[in-house]
Design a binder for these strands. Structure first.
Lengths: 131, 131
DNA sequence: CCTACCGTACTATCTGAATAGTACACAGGA
DNA sequence: TCCTGTGTACTATTCAGATAGTACGGTAGG
């Protein structure tokens, strides 16, 4: 599980963790029944305060993605897969929508936007994107 | 000049103002030599504290987009047009890039992303987008 | 039993963003 | 001259996000 926190993202760190865990479940890196990395371990991985990770895990429990094992850790729920796939689509769609709406408000027409997007798509043709 | 501030945007308000002024210059809603709305007037328009607008105008001066007229107001500089068009492209490209990178990290391939984007583009075919 | 790890709940502190309110020097018009 | 509007510079306050540190009850394994 590769976690990347981007401070210049605008999104709070705990939110980025929530999203990335959901995305990992959605595409199979985490599977129902798996134990998620412990609060303290995840905090080390992403170089962040344990409280921030705890906050993210708490949100994920509220969303029904994680369930507690009393003193053992946190487990991906049985229903998480379907839900995370739906969440992923919604979250990514919303973010794309925000960017595209700003393009339109900035005076770009659909063709301009398509050109920009094609550029970026070529620019990011692999997971290991430079940024 | 239509200004829209979105609190759920992630971006600070003063940053949103900076971007929207630049975009307005870039596509001709503001022209070099024009006076920008006064700090207090703009604050009323966007329902925001005057200090926040002042902060945005200060940033725009640092960027060379605005210049002061001693006791009269702030004027769009002569060089603003070219610079704002370049800034607009860069800022919007960066935002699109951020969204697309998150899509790729989330496990979507290029076709998935294109489908999502086409959806959103159809969904936002006019300036007066619902959101 | 004891140690280690688990989530969780606290308190305190720091920072950036935003708000509120006041004050000042400058220009323009009546 | 006086009044109004301009940008600008302050201080104080509130709030969310993040950090730091401590503590507690539950579980597993030696």
């Amino acid at each position: 599980m590769l976690m990347r926190i981007d401070a210049s993202n605008g999104l709070p760190i705990y939110d980025q963790i929530v999203r990335q865990v959901k995305f990992a479940v959605a595409h199979g890196a985490f599977r129902p029944g798996d134990l998620v990395p412990s609060v303290r371990e995840m905090a080390l991985q992403v170089a962040v305060n344990p409280n921030t990770v705890a906050r993210a895990y708490r949100d994920l429990q509220v969303d029904g993605v994680l369930e507690p094992l009393r003193g053992e850790g946190l487990r991906i729920t049985k229903d998480a897969l379907k839900q995370c796939q739906a969440d992923r689509k919604r979250l990514l769609r919303d973010r794309l929508r925000g960017a595209i709406v700003e393009c339109r408000r900035g005076g770009l027409d659909t063709d301009d936007i398509r050109k920009l997007i094609d550029d970026v798509l070529k620019d990011t043709v692999r997971e290991g994107v430079s940024s």
